[in-house]
Design a protein around this nucleic acid. Sequence first.
DNA 1: ACCATCCTTGACATGATGTAAGACTTCGCG
DNA 2: CGCGAAGTCTTACATCATGTCAAGGATGGT
Lengths: 224, 224
Amino acid sequence: MVKRVACPVMNDAPETRRRRSDARRSIDAILTAARTLLGHQPDASMEEIAQAAGVTRQTVYAHFASRDALITALIDAAGAETVEAIDAARLDTDPPVTALRRYLDIGWQLIRRYPYLLTTALARTPPGSEAAHAAGTDHLEGIIRRGQDTGDFATALPSGWLAVAVVGLAHTAADQVAAGRLDADQAYAVFSESALRLCGVPVPGPVRDESRHRSSAVQQGSME
Amino acid sequence: MVKRVACPVMNDAPETRRRRSDARRSIDAILTAARTLLGHQPDASMEEIAQAAGVTRQTVYAHFASRDALITALIDAAGAETVEAIDAARLDTDPPVTALRRYLDIGWQLIRRYPYLLTTALARTPPGSEAAHAAGTDHLEGIIRRGQDTGDFATALPSGWLAVAVVGLAHTAADQVAAGRLDADQAYAVFSESALRLCGVPVPGPVRDESRHRSSAVQQGSME
DNA sequence: ACCATCCTTGACATGATGTAAGACTTCGCG
DNA sequence: CGCGAAGTCTTACATCATGTCAAGGATGGT
C-alpha cells in the first residue's frame, strides 16, 4: 500500500537492505528534523539537527555519511515526491498552457513545503542532487517544447533555457517571500504570471489585483 | 583605474584614516586574490586566500574582521563600481527600452567580471551587503517604473517584482554559464531577451536562428 | 634617522566535521 | 521467552577552519 519513499542516498548496503523498525524511525526523525530545522537556519550543525531529531550526532552519521549526504537525501526525497506528484497529474495529456499552469502550481507547493531547498541547498548543489533536480526540469522542458510545437508558446527562446529560467523565477519569488517583501499568495501570483509571460503565452487574465492585500500569515523564513 | 575604490567595509577607523602604502597594497592584493580565487572555489579558506594574495592569514584579519567582512567588502566594491558605471551611463535620460537594454548590458558585464558574486555571496547575503545590492536593484526598478508610466512596458506586474525577477534571471543565466550549458554570449542573448519579454516589451528581433529545428531535443541531463 | 604603522611568526581557543571502539538497549525471530 | 544481531549511546580522538593575542622584525613617511 503506502510505499515509503525508500531511503535515498544512504551509505550502507545498496538498497534492498531491510532495516529494523527503530532504525527507520531514526532516519525519518532525522530527515524531518533536518528539513524543518534547516528551513529557517540553513547552517545548523549536525549536533543541532541530531538534537532536534532526538538522537545523537553519531546516530546521524550512522545513517548519513556526511552533511552533504544528508542534504542530498533531503533533496532526493523532495524531488521524488514532486516527480511523483507530477506524474500523477498526467500533464502530458493536457493542453500545454494548462499543463504548464499545473506544473507551476505543483512546483510552488514543493517550494512552500521545503523552503530550505531553495535557500542554500540549491545554491551550491551538492554532488548527487543533480539527477533529482534535473528530473523536474526535464519534465518542464518537455511541456515547454510541446507548447512550442503546438504554437501555444513562443519559440524565440530555447526550451532548455526557458525551463531553467522558470525554475529560477520560482527561486526569486521564494526569496522574496523569505525576505518578507511578498506574502506567499502574491509571490505565487507574480511568479506564475511571469513564467507564462516568459513562455510567450498571451497574458491570460488579470493578475489578480493586489488592491486588497490579504494578509495571510504564511511567511516562513522569518530569520531573526 | 584612476581612483582606487577606497577601502570599503573595514574594521578600523571609519575611513579618514590614511593608510601606509604597503597596507593599501596588501588590501588590494587580498581583495584581488579573494575575487579571483573565490570565483572558481567559493569555499576557499582564509589561508588559501591569504596565500594567493602573498600575505599571511593574520594580515588578512588585520584588515578584515572576518570572512563575512571580506565578502561584504568584495560585494561593496563591485557594487560601487557598477553603480558608478550606471550613473555614468546617464540612463535616466534615455527612453525606457534603451535604458533597460543598457542596464542589462552593464549588469551582465558585472557578472562576467565577478562570477563569484552570484555563486554564493548573493545566495546567502551577508549582513551589510544589502545596501549595495539594493542600490542597483532600485535603479532598475526606477527604469521599469518609468517604462510602465510611458506605456513602453506592461503594467500587469509590479515594478519591484520585475526588478528582482530580472536580477534573478541574470543569476540563472550566469549559473548556466558556470554549469557549461551555455556560453557567455548565448547566455547574455537569452537573458536579455527574457528580461525584455518579462517587462512586456514587444520582442524586438530574432534572438537566434531557431529555424524549424525539431531535431535533437537539446541536451537533457543524461548523467549516468 | 626616528617612530608609528604594518607585517610576520607562533601560539592558543573554539567549534564543527568526521572517525573509532566498547557498552548498552532494543528489535526480530525462532 | 531468550538469544543474536542490529541499532544506539557514551566517550574519546583527530582534523580543519575561524578568530584572537602578543611579541619581534621590517618598512614607510616625514
